[in-house]
């Protein structure tokens, strides 16, 4: 399989990713959507892994998983592992998308109406 466009300056050196994740390559199954909003519940503590510290600072306001990944310049899958640690220890909470249909299911009319109003107000 071909690789997609890899951007310059990005942290995707395999050894470094291995270190950041402490060798784990798998996030808790389906724990986070790309747009799950993460909220910090605690201040960083001394000795915390630097990526965890950055996440907690960033998530003082709700922040989507993809935004955390973009901000840290780390692959989404790596960020999900780091977020899993923080979720497990209660340092963050997760606001999951409430619209999560199965395949081939349509959004409900209420949601659509709200989105439409939001877009029209732009």
């Amino acid at each position: 399989m071909n690789a997609g466009p890899v951007l310059p300056g990005r942290d995707d050196d395999p050894d470094r990713l291995y270190t950041i994740t402490k060798g784990r390559s798998r996030a808790p199954e389906n724990a986070f959507d790309l747009v799950t909003l993460i909220v910090a519940e605690r201040q960083p503590t001394p000795g915390m892994q630097s990526e965890h510290v950055r996440i907690l600072r960033m998530c003082e306001a709700p922040t989507a998983v993809v935004e955390v990944a973009a901000e840290l310049a780390l692959p989404v899958s790596v960020v999900k592992i780091l977020l899993g640690d923080l979720l497990e220890s209660g340092a963050v909470t997760a606001r999951h998308p409430r619209f999560a249909p199965n395949k081939a299911r349509l959004p409900d009319l209420d949601t659509l109406k709200q989105v439409l109003h939001g877009l029209q107000r732009l």
Partner: peptide, 28 residues
């Protein structure tokens, strides 16, 4: 903003051996 996802063929985690990058694909 730009970000990227790392994935293997079957989508079963990134790499069973736990080593990043060997069999995985990065897409922005």
């Amino acid at each position: 903003l730009n970000t990227e996802e790392v994935m293997t063929r079957a989508g079963e985690g990134i790499d069973p051996a736990g080593s990043w990058g060997k069999r995985s694909t990065t897409v922005a």
